[in-house]
Amino acid sequence: MNSRGSNSSGNSAIALRRLMTEYRQLTSGGSPDGMFTAGPISESDFFTWEALICGPKDTPFEGGVFVAKLTFPTDYPLSPFKMRFEPPIYHPNIYPDGTVCISILHTPGDDPTMYEQASERWSPVQSIEKVILSVISMLAEPNLESGANIDCCKLYRENKAEYERRVRESIKQQLGL
């Protein structure tokens, strides 16, 4: 994964303007089907956002609401941001610490598995909205070729019913039911 301000040309002014624009567009348009909201956590730091994501329908995640923290590098959008669910979600493509492993957030340098198509990677014309929508479809359909949670991958492959039961269980717990 990329670290903050990775390359030589981190210029926060450009990043900030682009983040402002994306924020404005998100708030004025709303997300498709109201599946998520996202915005900066506080006025004094535009580089850290929070997203609230609804579990997609007809998946074991349905009914859940998941909080993810988005951390932007100062050279955004040249470099992608990081996304981490807090608390973590049990899912084949989410590391146990909650960090999302998805090709759209990877640059050529940091494809851990070498399975990813260049066409799916980060590019500066991607956006927060597109990434979150990709993550939502990833929740519905895990990508077992680039697993991040090995145990979870294994369970998913060998006993999908049990995997789904575990996911639903964790959502119930989260909702305090």
Binding site: G30, S31, M35, G39, I41, S42, E50, C54, L175, G176
Partner: peptide, 20 residues
């Protein structure tokens, strides 16, 4: 700051339940 008050009613619904 972002007050997370988007127009997403169905999302809100669940969030309200989410007394976490």
């Amino acid at each position: 700051p972002h007050a997370l008050q988007g127009p997403q009613d169905n999302c809100k619904q669940t969030i309200v339940d989410d007394s976490e």
